[in-house]
Design a protein around this nucleic acid. Structure first.
Lengths: 160, 160
DNA sequence: GACATAAAGGTTGTGCACAATTTAATTGGA
DNA sequence: TCCAATTAAATTGTGCACAACCTTTATGTC
């Protein structure tokens, strides 16, 4: 490989390269489930909310999912990215989209039974990917915290 | 913002989010130069090579640039990404592309005078972006090294 | 109630990423 | 020498990201 010194000095390139490399590790795994990485992230958010609502019956859980805006806030993606992505998840039978009755501007996204069932089948996906990084658990935690701090800092600055 | 615990626990999401956040910082700056972030990365590689060849006259430097494959190895991008990107850089007058005389399969990419001059004008871009992360210099170095290590580990595994 | 303003989501257009295929040029034997 | 295998780049198709714009619905003010 070309050992480009300028590139290796840049944190931003390191982030860009590492992000793509880790997605490369996810790709074949997610491909087995017919998912892309951003689609998997959307499901993670929906699963999280679903677990919080687990005391309620299935009907009610499907009835009020997250809105597109709420998903966008969690993933920092706008409707231009999410709208077509959610359509594909719906076509795959994993989520349902439906206009809110209370506010018809909103679209609520909920899990189908199939989408909910997928969670268990994908339970060990993150562990396998974490192993591929070659980092120890402590290094992974430290890395994650530093990265989250960078992201928070940048977004806080942008809001001012 | 929705504080999604599952997402925040995932290193991969942290990488994905931080990478996009930092690109967001670059975007308005690069926009002032009419560049996208991947285009800027290509120029970084070309500038690096150009500096190594600085003893030679301009004609010779333009004559043997990097091939598309060499650029791809440095950035880990394939011709499917680079071909159209390089065409846009050529249309912008920053690089020239020309079939190698010795091996007509290869396409050599070199800087134009304008592309070379851009380097000086963009000298302080990385410093400004680094400041936006809110990390100290030491933290930035450590982060970069960890990320490069992750990337290397993943790519080494894939080659086996 | 009428109307300006804002909010939510969709659409369009551009530019990556990446897989898969294609075309052309080179290389390495038999 | 001929020709199969390889290599380099381009092309095609799909799916993000993101900016800019549009449509519909809700809200606030008079």
């Amino acid at each position: 490989m070309t050992d480009d010194l300028v590139l290796r000095r840049q944190v931003c390139f390191a982030l860009y390269a590492a992000s793509r490399a880790l997605t490369d590790v996810y790709r074949p795994v997610l491909d087995g489930f017919g998912l892309t990485y951003p689609q998997y992230l959307v499901l993670l958010v929906l699963w999280e909310r679903d677990a919080r609502d687990s005391g309620r019956d299935a009907q009610a859980r499907e009835a009020d999912g997250l809105t597109v805006s709420e998903l966008g806030a969690a993933l920092r993606l706008d409707s231009g990215t999410l709208s077509p992505l959610l359509k594909r998840l719906e076509a795959a039978g994993l989520v349902v989209r439906r206009r809110s009755v209370r506010d018809e501007r909103r679209v609520e996204v909920g899990l189908t039974a199939e989408g909910r069932a997928l969670r268990d089948r994908m339970d060990d996906v993150p562990t396998g990917v974490a192993r591929a990084t070659g980092l120890t658990a402590d290094e992974l935690f430290a890395l994650r915290d530093t990265l989250n701090r960078v992201t928070e800092t940048i977004h806080r600055q942008k809001e001012q």
